[in-house]
Amino acid sequence: MPGRDPHSGAAVRIRKAIALVNSVADEAGDEEITPTEIAEAIRDCLELTDVDSVPNVRRYLGEALDAVSDGMPADFVAMTLYAALGALREGSPD
């Protein structure tokens, strides 16, 4: 489809992972998100082949996954995921 962002699938999955992390950070107080769920959401992103079509996206996602495993603060994980989203956006055609 002309003008369609080929990386939108990856962007949607990264946004889902960010939403989970933000939910932990912002404490809406209406759900329990475990690190396992966040790690799973990031692994879902890594499974997409289009993350390899843009430089650094896989690297940032890997760093975010490591940050979850290492118990880093939610904001740090969010920041790394935003970096992945930003790299994806920069690598997308206008």
Binding site: A19, D26, E27, A28, G29, D30, E31, I33
Partner: peptide
């Protein structure tokens, strides 16, 4: 999340209604 929290806080004192959340992020 911050918007949902604002709603829960706004309605927590109402004796006639209650609020809860359903679904998964980011469609919660």
């Amino acid at each position: 999340p911050f918007e949902r929290r604002a709603i829960h806080l706004a309605l927590e004192g109402d004796p006639d209604v209650t609020s809860s959340s359903i679904g998964e992020e980011p469609e919660r």
